Simulated assay, not measured.
Amino acid sequence: MMTIKKFIYFLLCYLTTSLAFANNPTPKQFFNHYITLNENFDPALADLYADTAKIQIFRKYPHGLERSMALSGLQWKMLINKMMPIAKASNDRSKFSNIKITPIAKKYKIKADRFSTIKCYTDKGYYMVIEPKENGAFEIIEEYMETQPNSNCE
């Protein structure tokens, strides 16, 4: 009888731990979820951003002009919802490699090389910062990316 009680106890502990882990993913799982939503052109991607997130987009033109644009998370969410169908129609994808996750207090900085499949260039400056909300789930509070207007594709 003790064996059955122990088994049930360990099973309950395992299930409780698994459910808690499923509700609060690791930074790597969070980023993998971000990638999946991005690859599937899922507008739910916008839900991963805090309304107060700081989004920085840096663009360098071939003639040397450089521009920087800053958006709030709320502005970025609205843009994602508008642009996702356009990105899907043109099959505009980002592929991530060399992913490095660095803890910074309770936050995490996720740095990666972001390859644009539609313009054939790699953004080596890409990063995001995530932070747990009150419920423990992560949200994006900062993101930086570098873009270019022209394609490097042949």
Rank of each mutant, 00 (worst) to 15 (best):
T36K: 14
M145Q: 11
M84E: 03
K88P: 09
S90L: 15
L19W: 06
K107A: 15
N150H: 09
A70D: 14
K5A: 15
F10N: 14
L11F: 15
K107D: 15
A50L: 10
K100C: 05
A137G: 10
I118L: 13
N81T: 07
A46I: 02
N40A: 12
I130C: 02
F138H: 06
E139N: 14
D47N: 12
E154W: 08
Y121K: 02
T122E: 01
S151W: 04
T122N: 05
N152D: 10
T122W: 03
L48A: 01
Y121E: 01
R114H: 03
C153W: 02
L19V: 13
A89S: 10
G136F: 13
P149R: 07
Y49W: 05
Q148V: 03
K133Q: 12
I140A: 00
M84V: 07
S90Q: 15
L12E: 02
E131T: 09
A105V: 14
L79W: 10
D113E: 08
M2A: 13
L74E: 11
D92F: 08
Q75S: 10
L12P: 00
Q29K: 08
I130P: 01
K82E: 11
L48D: 00
P149C: 09
P132Y: 04
L65F: 10
F21M: 10
F31C: 06
Y127P: 02
W76H: 12
Y49V: 03
T52A: 08
H33I: 02
F41Y: 08
N38I: 02
S151K: 01
N32E: 12
T117F: 04
F21Y: 13
L71G: 02
M1C: 11
M2W: 15
K100N: 10
S97W: 12
N152M: 08
E66R: 10
I55W: 00
G73Y: 00
V129P: 04
Q56F: 14
T122G: 04
K106G: 05
C153Y: 04
A44G: 09
K109M: 08
A70H: 11
T26R: 04
W76R: 05
N24Y: 04
D92I: 04
K54G: 06
F30L: 03
I55C: 01
I104T: 15
E139I: 08
I57V: 15
E139Y: 07
C153I: 07
M69Y: 15
T52R: 09
Y108N: 06
Y34S: 00
L48W: 01
S151T: 07
P149E: 11
R59A: 13
E131S: 09
T102Q: 09
A44Y: 04
I130Q: 02
S68R: 14
L65H: 13
T122S: 06
G64L: 08
H63L: 05
C120Q: 03
F96E: 07
N32D: 15
K111F: 14
Y144N: 06
L15N: 06
A105E: 15
D92H: 05
Y127N: 00
K124N: 11
N150T: 14
P27Q: 06
Y144C: 03
N152C: 01
Y144H: 09
L45I: 01
Q29N: 05
N23T: 15
T17S: 07
Y121L: 01
S116F: 04
A87G: 08
R67D: 15
R67W: 15
I80K: 00
L37T: 02
F41I: 02
K109V: 10
K133I: 05
G64D: 05
